[in-house]
């Protein structure tokens, strides 16, 4: 606990201070989620209502998800070296399974009856999309984003191995010198960030899911 309580670990001018590592970590997670969504949303929409294509894409995403992060980063280092790409590529790959699956599930879950009801009351296509389709699909998509974000926060610790700074630095730099205080501080901060992100996105999900069954906490 000492490490977390020392004021000098919060010195903003030190790039390795907790606030700076925290921001670096957020940056990694943010850029990962951005790229992930740009890939997964269109892909999820594409495979929705196409069972064969869905199975193919999901099987590939599942196998990629299965490859351990450490192994993937290790293999990438031999190709792309110590770079941001080496850190980001595995993170993006791991988000795809849940994001594609939830997006497809969300699109499949839009009730065609309600689309028609919207149309029948005189909604134009834009109103049908904004007032009927999106409100139905968003909660499931956000549920996927929530899981993907929390997962990414955890794995982003490994970005250190690709030479990218983040909260993982606290763990990997200090484990060699057996400075467990710093190591545990890193673990706690990552867990804390994950839990906070989880709760924030849960709140978003709950708001979006109004009127329907409550969402589970786990």
């Amino acid at each position: 606990m000492n490490y977390l309580l020392q004021p000098y670990n919060y010195d903003l001018s030190d790039p390795a201070s907790i606030p700076n590592l925290f921001l670096d970590h957020l940056y990694l997670v943010g850029i990962t989620m951005l790229i992930s969504l740009i890939i997964a949303l269109p892909l999820g929409i594409l495979v929705a209502r196409r069972p064969r294509l869905y199975l193919l894409v999901i099987t590939i995403a599942d196998l990629l998800y299965t490859v351990p992060a450490l192994a993937l980063i290790a293999i990438l280092i031999t190709i792309t070296g110590l770079s941001l790409a080496t850190a980001i590529i595995p993170l993006v790959i791991y988000t795809q399974l849940v994001l594609i699956r939830n997006t497809a599930t969300a699109i499949n879950g839009i009730d065609p009856l309600l689309l028609e009801v919207g149309k029948a009351m005189g909604m134009n296509p834009r109103q049908v999309l904004l007032r009927v389709a999106l409100p139905q699909a968003l909660p499931t998509i956000i549920a996927g984003v929530r899981i993907a974000t929390v997962t990414t926060i955890g794995i982003a610790a490994l970005a250190y191995l690709a030479g990218q700074s983040g909260l993982g630095d606290l763990i990997f730099k200090n484990i060699a010198t057996t400075d467990f205080d710093a190591v545990v501080a890193g673990g706690i901060l990552i867990a804390l960030l994950a839990v906070v992100a989880d709760l924030l996105l849960l709140a978003v999900q709950t708001v979006l899911n109004r009127g329907r069954t409550s969402v589970s906490l786990a």
Binding site: L113, V117, R131, V132, P135, Q136, N209, G211, R212
Partner: peptide
């Protein structure tokens, strides 16, 4: 319509 089709949200 029979299924009513109220918007659940």
């Amino acid at each position: 319509i029979q299924q009513v089709g109220l918007f659940p949200h």
